[in-house]
C-alpha cells in the first residue's frame, strides 16, 4: 500500500533522528520491563522513561522497555502487574501516592502493599495558595476563615480523592471543622484549577508546587505554605510543620518489583535501582525535570508504604470517599 511506503520514508527519518540518543550499555545484562500504570505523557510515564534513560546510560541494565497500562488512577496497571510479575526477576512498576488513594477509593482488590517495594525515588511538595487580592495573608487567616464558615471556603485542586483533596481535608480538619463538610471543587488538573484561582472563583487552591511556581513567583498567587516536612531551597513558603500544623504530605513516586520476588533476583534489582539513583545522570534528570529527590532505600520504603496506606485510608474515610 502506498501510504505505508510513505511511512517507511518518514520512519527512516524518525529513525535517524532517534539513533543519536540510543547507546548500548553492556555492563549488566538485565533486560527489564517497566510498567507505567498511566498513559504516555503523564507523571508516572515520564518517571518511567527517565528511569529507563538513566538505567541504560549508566549501564545498570542492558535494555529497558516501558509499557503503558493506563486506567483508573493506576489500579488497572497495578492489577495487571501483580498478575504478570509474580516472582519475575525483570519486571518493575513505577507508582506513587495517587495509586494508594485510587486503590482505596475505587475499592480495588489490589493495592501497593501486595508488590515488593524497591526504592522511593522522588517527592514533590504541594502548595496551598490564595489569590493576590485575598484578605487571607497567612495560613492562620485561612484556618480562621475555615472555622467561621467551612461551606463558603471554596477549595480548588486536582481530582476528587487525589493528593490535593487529601491536603485540603487535612487543613480543614486542623482548623477544627468537619472534613466531610469541605467544599472542594475538583478539576482535571493543575491547569484548570489555576484558571479558577486566577479568575477569583475560589478561596484557596492546592496543587503541586511546580505547576503553579510561575504564578507564585510573579505574585499573582500568594503561597501560604508547602506540605513538605522541611523547608526547600528556592521556595519562599514555609512548611505547614514550621507554622505549627502537624501536617505533611508529599507527592512521592517509587519503584516496585512484582510480588514474591526474593533472594538473588531481588538483590540484583535493588542494586540496579540503587546504583542508578546514585548516578550523576539521575541527578541531572531530577534537576532538569524539577523533581525533588526523596530517595529512601527498600526497608524504609516498605514501612513507609504501609503507613501511607493506613493514613490515606483514614483521611478518605473522613471525607466520605471510602468506607
Amino acid at each position: 500500500m502506498r501510504n505505508f511506503m510513505k511511512y517507511g520514508l518518514m520512519a527512516a527519518i524518525v529513525g535517524s533522528v532517534l539513533s543519536f540518543g540510543s547507546l548500548s550499555a553492556t555492563a549488566q545484562d538485565l533486560e527489564l520491563t517497566i510498567t507505567a500504570p498511566a498513559g504516555a505523557g503523564g507523571g508516572w510515564d515520564s518517571a518511567s522513561r527517565s528511569l529507563q534513560e538513566a538505567m541504560m546510560a549508566t549501564g545498570n541494565a542492558k535494555s529497558v522497555q516501558v509499557v503503558n497500562v493506563p486506567g483508573a488512577g493506576g489500579t488497572v496497571g497495578l492489577a495487571q502487574f501483580i498478575g504478570s510479575a509474580k516472582g519475575s526477576p525483570n519486571q518493575l512498576l513505577v507508582a506513587g501516592i495517587t495509586l494508594v488513594g485510587a486503590s482505596i477509593s475505587n475499592k480495588s482488590p489490589v493495592n501497593l502493599t501486595q508488590v515488593t517495594p524497591l526504592a522511593r525515588l522522588t517527592g514533590d511538595p504541594l502548595v496551598i495558595v490564595v489569590s493576590k487580592d485575598s484578605p487571607i495573608k497567612t495560613i492562620d487567616d485561612l484556618l480562621a476563615t475555615i472555622k467561621t464558615d467551612v461551606a463558603k471556603t471554596i477549595w480548588v485542586g486536582g481530582s476528587a480523592g487525589g493528593a490535593d483533596h487529601i491536603l485540603a481535608a487535612l487543613v480543614t480538619k486542623a482548623a477544627g471543622a468537619d472534613p466531610a463538610k469541605i467544599n472542594y471543587v475538583a478539576y482535571s488538573g493543575g491547569g484548570e484549577s489555576l484558571a479558577a484561582m486566577l479568575g477569583g472563583q475560589a478561596t484557596a487552591g492546592v496543587s503541586g508546587y511546580g505547576e503553579w511556581e510561575g504564578q507564585i513567583k510573579s505574585g499573582d498567587l500568594r503561597a501560604l505554605a508547602i506540605s513538605y516536612p522541611e523547608p526547600i531551597e528556592g521556595i519562599e513558603a514555609k512548611p505547614l510543620k514550621a507554622q505549627g500544623l502537624d501536617i505533611e504530605l508529599v507527592n512521592w513516586r517509587g519503584i516496585f518489583a512484582g510480588p514474591d520476588v526474593q533472594g538473588a533476583d531481588l538483590d540484583a534489582l535493588k542494586a540496579a535501582v540503587d546504583n542508578t539513583v546514585k548516578s550523576e545522570q539521575w541527578q541531572a534528570i531530577l534537576k532538569a525535570r524539577g523533581w525533588s529527590d526523596y530517595y529512601a532505600p527498600t526497608d524504609e520504603f516498605k514501612t513507609f508504604i504501609a503507613s501511607e496506606n493506613d493514613r490515606v485510608r483514614s483521611i478518605l474515610t473522613s471525607i466520605g470517599l471510602a468506607d
Binding site: 491547569g191 489555576l194 484558571a195 486566577l198 510561575g214 504564578q215 513567583k217 532538569a288
Partner: peptide, 30 residues
C-alpha cells in the same frame, strides 16, 4: 494560556509544558 500563564489547557499543552521544563524554562507570567 500556555505561554502567558503557564496554563496547560489541553493534553497537548501539558506535554509541551513538560518539554519547556526540560530546559528549565517555566512558562508563566514571566
Amino acid at each position: 494560556p500556555l505561554l502567558t500563564l503557564g496554563l496547560p489547557t489541553s493534553a497537548t499543552a501539558a506535554v509541551m509544558l513538560a518539554g519547556f521544563q526540560q530546559y528549565n524554562i517555566q512558562p508563566g507570567p514571566l
